[in-house]
Amino acid sequence: MTERFQQAIHLMRKRNPQDREDGFGLLLPHTAEHLDQLIAEFNQEQADHGLRCWLLELIGEARSPKALPVLIEQLHNDDESLRSWAVSGLKLLDTKPARYELAKARANGLID
């Protein structure tokens, strides 16, 4: 794990909203290089809903086919916020499999 990633996650776990924003901003331009760590953090995080949403947003911002399984899984989540970030990530990915999953979710009434 790189120092940047550790520092950003540490900030994102703080109570101070500005620290949290700073941590997010530190990772945003580097999502692709930290994708594996972002996915691992997302899968481990259970307590902080806001952090889970931000991690999923960052995963989508990576625009990597490696993110597809996580995004598809969250597309079917009962949590509307996570589902919304999954939709955003799939749209950003904009691959044939991502478009297929979005179309299927629309057809099944999961999303608008």
Rank of each mutant, 00 (worst) to 15 (best):
Ile111Leu: 01
Val70Thr: 05
Leu110Trp: 15
Leu27Glu: 12
Ala67Pro: 00
Gly25Leu: 15
Asn77Glu: 12
Leu26Met: 13
Ile39Ala: 03
His76Tyr: 15
Ala8Tyr: 09
Gly50Cys: 03
Glu73Met: 13
Leu92Gln: 08
Ala40Val: 01
Glu45Thr: 06
Gly109Leu: 02
His49Trp: 09
Glu33Ala: 05
Leu71Cys: 12
Ile111Cys: 00
Ser84Glu: 05
Asp22Met: 09
Arg99Phe: 07
Ala40Glu: 11
His34Tyr: 10
Asn77Gln: 11
Ala105His: 13
Asn108Ile: 04
Asp112His: 10
Asp94Asn: 14
Lys96Pro: 09
Gln37Thr: 07
Asn16Arg: 15
Arg4Gly: 01
Asn77Ser: 13
Asp94Ile: 12
Arg83Tyr: 05
Gln46Ala: 12
Phe42Gly: 00
Gln6Glu: 13
Gln7Cys: 14
Glu3Pro: 02
Gly89Ala: 06
Leu28Arg: 13
Thr2Ile: 07
Ala67Val: 02
Ala40Tyr: 10
Gly23Tyr: 00
Pro69Trp: 03
Gln18Leu: 13
Asn43Glu: 15
His10Gly: 05
Arg99Asp: 11
Gln74Asp: 12
Phe5Ile: 03
Asp78Phe: 09
Ala105Lys: 08
Gln6Val: 03
Met1Ile: 04
Pro69Glu: 07
Pro97Cys: 03
Arg83Val: 09
Leu27His: 03
Gln7His: 09
Ala103Arg: 03
Glu33Val: 15
Glu57Ile: 11
Asp48Cys: 10
Glu3Phe: 02
Leu102Tyr: 00
Arg106His: 04
Gly89Cys: 06
Glu33Trp: 07
Ile39Cys: 03
Arg20Gln: 08
Glu33Cys: 06
Gly109Ser: 12
Lys66Cys: 14
Phe24Gln: 05
Thr95Ala: 14
Leu28Gln: 15
Asn43Gln: 09
Arg13Ala: 11
Ile9Met: 13
Glu73Gln: 15
Pro69Leu: 04
Lys66Asp: 06
Ala32His: 10
Gln46Leu: 02
Leu38Thr: 08
Pro17Ala: 10
Glu33Gln: 11
Phe24Lys: 12
Phe24Thr: 00
Leu38Gln: 04
Ala8Asn: 09
Leu56Ser: 08
Asp79Gln: 04
Ile72Asn: 09
Ser84Met: 02
Asn43Trp: 06
Leu11Ile: 10
Ala32Glu: 14
Asp22His: 07
Gly89His: 01
Pro69Asn: 11
Arg4Thr: 10
Leu92Ile: 04
Leu56Met: 13
Cys53Pro: 05
Ala107His: 04
Ala105Glu: 13
Leu38Arg: 04
Thr2Cys: 12
Asp22Ser: 08
Phe24His: 11
Glu41Asp: 00
Leu82Ser: 12
Arg63Val: 06
His30Cys: 06
Glu41Thr: 06
Arg20Ser: 07
Ile111Glu: 10
His34Met: 12
Thr2His: 10
His30Leu: 05
Gln37Trp: 10
His10Met: 15
Glu101Gln: 11
Arg83Ser: 02
Gln6Pro: 12
Asp94Arg: 07
Glu80Ser: 01
Glu45Val: 08
Leu71Arg: 14
Ala105Asp: 15
Ala40Leu: 08
Ile72Phe: 08
Ser84Asn: 05
Asn108His: 15
Gly50Ala: 08
Lys96Thr: 02
Arg63His: 11
Arg63Trp: 02
Gly25Phe: 09
Gln44Asn: 14
Asp19Ala: 15
Pro17Glu: 04
Glu61Asn: 03
Glu73Trp: 13
Gln7Pro: 00
